[in-house]
């Protein structure tokens, strides 16, 4: 298995998703977050938020809402069972609240291998903007692909 470095620079189709209260509530339940600002509008307002905010890593739920989900793996022709998450970084530029419409666009920024091709690394960046076009966050992730053929040398 070898990944095609010509895919560096590939930009995926942007999509827009709505920040839903129920999705934020389920996300918080899953991660054990019990602060009521994430579920109760009154608690959010009392804490100075104009609406219910989203936890710092909820952006993963937004980017996973892509109607063309799995696009990166289809582009790379990689089976989902072979991937691991190598790194993830978020930069927060403006608050996001329940009800906001967020547009996400992902781009492949680097592809490289290590250990003689036993592991491949795909770096992608996603820009997230709200309904006014204001950038709200930038995400940078590294997907690690385990080469089923093992090391090449």
């Amino acid at each position: 298995m070898q990944l095609d470095k010509a895919l560096i620079g590939h930009t995926f189709k942007a999509f827009t998703t709505t920040v839903e209260a129920g999705k934020v509530r389920l996300f918080c339940k899953a991660i054990g977050e019990e602060n009521p600002i994430y579920t109760d509008p009154a608690a959010a307002k009392a804490a100075g938020h104009p609406g219910i905010p989203v936890p710092p890593t909820f952006f993963t739920a937004l980017t996973n809402d892509d109607p063309d989900k799995g696009g990166l793996l289809r582009l790379l022709k990689v089976d989902i069972g072979l991937i691991l998450h190598g790194e993830q970084h978020y930069e927060y530029l403006a608050p996001v609240h329940v009800g906001d419409r967020v547009t996400c666009q992902q781009k492949v920024v680097d592809i490289y291998d290590k250990k003689g091709g036993a592991l491949w690394f795909v770096v992608s960046e996603t820009e997230l903007k709200d309904q006014t076009g204001k950038p709200v966050a930038k995400a940078r992730g590294i997907t690690v692909v385990r080469n089923p053929d093992g090391a090449k040398k």
């Binding site: 710092p56 691991l84 993830q88 970084h89 930069e91």
Partner: peptide, 15 residues
Amino acid sequence: PQGQVRKLGTRFTSI
């Protein structure tokens, strides 16, 4: 408070 977090990042080092 949430609004004071500017960056959050990590490497995943073991399963």
